[in-house]
Nucleic acid binder design. Structure first.
Lengths: 114, 114
DNA sequence: CGGGATCCGTCTTGATACTG
DNA sequence: CAGTATCAAGACGGATCCCG
């Protein structure tokens, strides 16, 4: 995952961060649905599997887009929250949503876990 | 490649189209550098390999984002051009460029084949 | 029970060699 | 020049296991 960059191009570098089929969906769940826990991400309709989710959360944490905090002292619950860096992706998500809604038939804003 | 959709979410569906490490770079080359031929895409600094490029071009054509035309009657040269659908991705590219420039160190607008 | 880690079969990726 | 064939390596998806 820590590949050296392919070029100085901001598109190439951004794709190295979030250019796959899952990462932005995890960020979507945090940003628009307020999800914070491992199990909540698993409930999303796309059906991410546990190893992929764990991998992406760890990578997002390493890249500084997500912060992990213990939920309390006495449980293993973890909270995953967007950092400021992560939140700054909102315009990217917004424009992708707009493009998808306009150009891909039968897409629509889903509910929480639909 | 013709997977059935994971959900009606516009983000998920858009990622199924362009959510990988190469597709948007090919579109970048067409949109901002005016590249049209197979060989030109190969010259980009990220170093896409020929089978990946052929695969992505074919898929983009199938999805209606790119059109392929013979360059002339007497050569095998092909021209790849963005369709209107493909061109409509410009705002997506723009916001990704802006995000990358701002949030990833040492990124910059590259020249043609740099 | 929640949050993973591990294993395994399958699918995808990518580098290279090869072809018309 | 514009791809296709081949093949190794890696990613994915699912199931299972493990640990507090």
């Amino acid at each position: 995952m820590t590949q050296s960059r392919r070029s100085p191009c901001p598109i190439a570098c951004t794709l190295d961060l979030i250019g796959d089929r899952w990462t932005l969906l995890v960020i979507r769940d945090m940003m628009f649905f307020g999800k914070q826990r491992f199990e909540e991400f698993l409930e999303s309709p796309e059906g991410i599997s546990t190893n992929i989710l764990a991998n992406r959360l760890k990578y997002l944490e390493e890249m500084g887009l997500v912060e992990k905090q213990p939920y309390s002292n006495h449980s293993r619950r973890m909270n995953y929250q967007l950092t400021e860096q992560g939140t700054s992706l909102r315009p990217v998500l917004k424009v992708i949503i707009a493009w998808g809604l306009k150009h891909i038939p039968e897409t629509r804003i889903p509910n929480d876990n639909e």
